[in-house]
């Protein structure tokens, strides 16, 4: 059998796919190419769900890619040209249809809890609920406006507080807000919250989160909204509860002072 350099090279090329593929995932965290630290109550759950799928995907990826590499290596060196003449195998087909199907259904069901927690089941008792939200966030080309209601909880009238770009919220509190758009589609995305929701003109979409760590986080528009989309940046400031109360009352007094 003659040693064929090109064949070895091709095998190495295909082998590099799973090897480098896995390595870059393993090392991604070190290069800061991985999930930024999550700071909401549900962030951990989303990361966990991602990881479950990651494991399944990784095993399938490595398994199938290695089989492919092995097949290229093993079966490209024959010289007698003898092949296994077969048109398939019924049992194998059943197994490799049923097993993925079951795993996939399992994956789908595993998502439902977290999804309904985040998008469907809103806190039904105070301080904030869907009907008495903490604030309204109004997206527009190319800014974010945050509106805090007046002391009676009204979002219309003289005494509402409008703040551009910066959202202030208390830590460890279930914050419910309503997301609106003034003009085109936008999307409210705070990577560290693991929260994304499109803002749609004509809709008032309830959104909730509970931040677990104080700090300031990037708010990014995640839906193409025009030429300025890339710079539609906001900040979410998660404050200690007392700090938040102080900030709010200071805003109110500024408002009254201006009157």
């Amino acid at each position: 059998m003659k040693f064929n350099l090109f064949r070895v090279f091709v095998v190495l090329l295909f082998l590099a796919v799973p090897v480098l593929g896995v390595w870059t995932f393993v090392d991604a965290e070190r290069w800061k190419m991985w999930f930024p630290e999550g700071v909401t109550t549900y962030a951990g759950e989303i990361d966990f769900l991602f990881d479950i799928i990651l494991w399944m995907v990784a095993i399938t990826f490595v398994g199938t890619e290695f089989l492919l590499v092995w097949a290229i290596w093993r079966f490209s060196k024959k010289e007698d040209g003898k092949v296994t003449y077969t048109h398939g195998n019924h049992t194998l087909e059943v197994v490799w249809s049923a097993v993925p199907a079951l795993l996939l259904i399992f994956i789908a069901f595993s998502q439902m809890g977290a999804w309904s927690t985040i998008k469907m089941n809103f806190p039904d008792e105070g301080p904030y609920t869907v009907d008495a939200p903490m604030m309204e966030v109004i997206a527009g080309q190319f800014d974010w406006w945050v509106r805090y209601p007046d002391e009676e909880g009204n979002f219309r009238g003289e005494d509402v507080i409008d703040v551009p770009f910066d959202i202030h919220v208390p830590v460890n509190t279930k914050v419910v807000f309503r997301l609106k758009s003034r003009d085109v589609l936008h999307s409210f995305f705070v990577p560290k919250f693991r929260l994304k929701q499109d803002a749609v003109p004509g809709m008032s979409i309830p959104v909730w989160f509970e931040a677990t760590e104080t700090g300031s986080y990037d708010l990014i528009c995640a839906e193409l909204c025009g030429w300025g989309h890339y710079k539609m940046a906001g900040r979410v400031h998660v404050l200690e509860e007392q700090e938040y109360e102080d900030w709010l009352s200071q805003k109110r007094s500024e408002l009254y002072a201006n009157d």
Binding site: R7, L67, N89, P100, A108
Partner: peptide
């Protein structure tokens, strides 16, 4: 997610095709 199932079936059958073959690179 169910659509990933027929896709997987295709991949396995491609691998099955290569198994025991005589590949011309």
């Amino acid at each position: 997610v169910l659509i990933a199932m027929p896709s997987a079936v295709k991949v396995f059958n491609w691998l099955g095709t290569l198994w025991g073959s005589s590949i011309r690179l």
